[in-house]
Simulated scan of single mutants.
Amino acid sequence: MSRIVYVNGEYLPEEDAKISVFDRGFLFADGVYEVTSVLNGKLVDFDGHAKRLQRSLDELDMPNPVTFEELLEINRELIARNGLEEGGVYLQITRGAADRDFAYPANPKPTIVLFTLVMNISGSPKAETGLKVISIEDQRWGRRDIKTVQLLYPSMGKMMAKAAGADDAWMVEEGVVTEGTSNNAYIVTRDGKIVTRQLSNAILHGITRAAVLRMAEEAQMVVEERPFTIEEAQNAAEAFITSATTFVTPVVEIDGATLGDGAPGPIAKRLREIYMDEARAKAI
């Protein structure tokens, strides 16, 4: 049976879904997106993703074609129509179709697309083995806090990592780590502090990041928000990443240097357990 997707107010089989060749998302990457995880057929951190979506749209002076309630209903309807138990819902909003011009159209009619993704999130093998990452220069534009569809360089970074026999890349700017290609980056110092870069325009304001840092503090763990170098990361006791589709996933190797004994560390493992317990309990 074909996957059912949502395009501009219609639920359609994926092979029947179409948008204009003049869509500004296609021509200019003039659009934003969100991915909301699904566990047991329910949405994880939906409120946070909806709020960040609105922030991204506001930063780009782009209208939102749906209300919070409408968006929640669309997500739930797609999950039901596709029988999704675990995975995610991808959402993309662009400024819509207009003749190709760098200047925005005066009264845009946004394009909105949603579709479901089947993924093994809770039982990901990488949560057990840990990730290997490499470092690369961060060559993205400066407004990484806006979750735009401009993902070419992160895609290139993923391919650089793959070519090097690694799983992902951490991007470095002015000597310090910004974030992973599609995730926020963390280290755990030898005295047990969780270190991650502070929020700014340089990194995405991760929804999972916010939840995990709150949970860490509730669990009496020490959190320090500041930049760190690759060298500091290589000498750390642990490292991990967070994102909507990886939750908390340990990192066991950075640029060929093994962290600790090469196995996922206790803090990353505990944070993943806490996050998954709360995600299951509070999903809507």
Results as ranks from 00 to 15, higher is better:
residue 30 D to N: 07
residue 40 N to S: 13
residue 252 V to D: 04
residue 274 I to P: 01
residue 211 A to R: 15
residue 7 V to Y: 11
residue 138 D to M: 10
residue 275 Y to T: 10
residue 148 T to M: 04
residue 134 I to N: 00
residue 101 D to Y: 10
residue 79 I to S: 08
residue 250 P to N: 06
residue 124 S to L: 14
residue 166 A to H: 06
residue 205 H to Y: 01
residue 31 G to T: 03
residue 125 P to D: 02
residue 67 T to D: 02
residue 122 S to A: 15
residue 253 E to Y: 05
residue 98 A to P: 05
residue 262 G to W: 12
residue 196 T to A: 03
residue 165 G to V: 10
residue 207 I to D: 01
residue 69 E to N: 11
residue 79 I to A: 11
residue 105 P to K: 11
residue 99 D to G: 04
residue 177 V to Q: 04
residue 232 E to Q: 15
residue 137 E to D: 13
residue 156 M to N: 04
residue 89 V to Y: 03
residue 210 A to L: 06
residue 190 R to S: 12
residue 78 L to A: 07
residue 44 V to P: 04
residue 106 A to F: 13
residue 88 G to C: 06
residue 43 L to R: 08
residue 215 M to Y: 12
residue 187 I to V: 12
residue 170 W to V: 08
residue 154 P to S: 02
residue 204 L to F: 11
residue 124 S to G: 06
residue 177 V to L: 07
residue 216 A to Y: 08
residue 15 E to A: 12
residue 218 E to N: 15
residue 53 L to W: 05
residue 281 A to K: 15
residue 135 S to W: 04
residue 98 A to S: 15
residue 151 L to D: 00
residue 132 K to L: 02
residue 199 L to S: 00
residue 77 E to R: 13
residue 26 F to H: 10
residue 150 Q to G: 13
residue 41 G to L: 06
residue 254 I to H: 01
residue 259 L to Q: 10
residue 164 A to P: 09
residue 214 R to Q: 12
residue 127 A to K: 15
residue 182 S to R: 14
residue 70 E to V: 07
residue 109 K to V: 14
residue 43 L to M: 11
residue 110 P to Y: 09
residue 116 T to C: 13
residue 277 D to W: 08
residue 95 R to N: 03
residue 158 K to C: 11
residue 275 Y to H: 13
residue 206 G to Q: 02
residue 11 Y to W: 03
residue 172 V to W: 12
residue 268 A to Q: 09
residue 171 M to N: 03
residue 47 D to V: 08
residue 185 A to E: 02
residue 181 T to R: 01
residue 131 L to I: 11
residue 263 A to I: 08
residue 27 L to E: 00
residue 136 I to N: 05
residue 268 A to D: 05
residue 237 A to C: 08
residue 77 E to Q: 13
residue 276 M to C: 07
residue 235 N to F: 02
residue 79 I to M: 13
residue 81 R to W: 10
residue 280 R to H: 14
residue 192 G to I: 12
residue 162 K to M: 07
residue 20 S to I: 13
residue 281 A to Y: 15
residue 184 N to S: 13
residue 74 I to S: 00
residue 130 G to V: 04
